[in-house]
Design a protein around this nucleic acid. Structure first.
Length: 157
DNA sequence: GCCAACGTTGGC
DNA sequence: GCCAACGTTGGC
């Protein structure tokens, strides 16, 4: 079982939006970065859990936990010319971009902020905290997962 | 709003 | 293959 972190701009799609979605589930569409694509397509497995992170928001930080309920499949928004995330170079027969489905597991009792995570012992190598890191789909080590769940006051899953 | 850091594009 | 220019991300 692996752990991940998914970034979303809270005013575009927040964790509470996920909680309100049908079956508390959504397609994680719109990722247009190859490294993140590889993670979505090849590495995220059903049952894996992920932190739901709010970027460009107030507060900035981890708002909830979700789980992968469907493994990587083609991101249809890349194939739809009417869609904002359309990519003319991606073809249905050989799709470039992939997505997974995630379901909300629980909100954290409070948002664990980015500012708070900086300086926490054991998180020095966390991808999120690296200088210039902007990967929107990224790995979280088991130890990092446990530390952050501890800070949030929830059981590590 | 600013700007550093990053990924992509395209000329050569 | 190099690298400058550009567009985007995302914290501050």
């Amino acid at each position: 079982m692996s752990h991940w972190l998914l970034k979303s701009e809270a005013d575009v799609f927040s964790f509470s939006d996920l909680l309100k979605a049908p079956k508390r589930t959504t397609h994680w569409d719109g990722v247009r970065n190859y490294q993140a694509r590889n993670t979505l397509r090849d590495l995220m497995k059903k049952g894996d859990s992920a932190f739901f992170y709010h970027s460009s928001s107030e507060p900035i930080g981890i708002a909830g936990i979700c789980e992968v309920v469907r493994e990587g499949y083609p991101d249809h928004t890349a194939l739809d010319p009417a869609h904002a995330h359309f990519d003319e170079k991606s073809k249905a027969a050989a799709p470039t971009w992939f997505m997974v489905d995630v379901r909300a597991v629980r909100a954290l009792p409070r948002v664990v902020t980015l500012a708070e995570l900086r300086g926490v012992k054991g998180l020095e190598k966390m991808v999120l905290l690296q200088k210039g890191s902007r990967l929107s789909v990224q790995p979280v080590s088991p130890r990092e997962w446990a530390i952050i769940c501890g800070i949030a006051g929830v059981a590590a899953t």
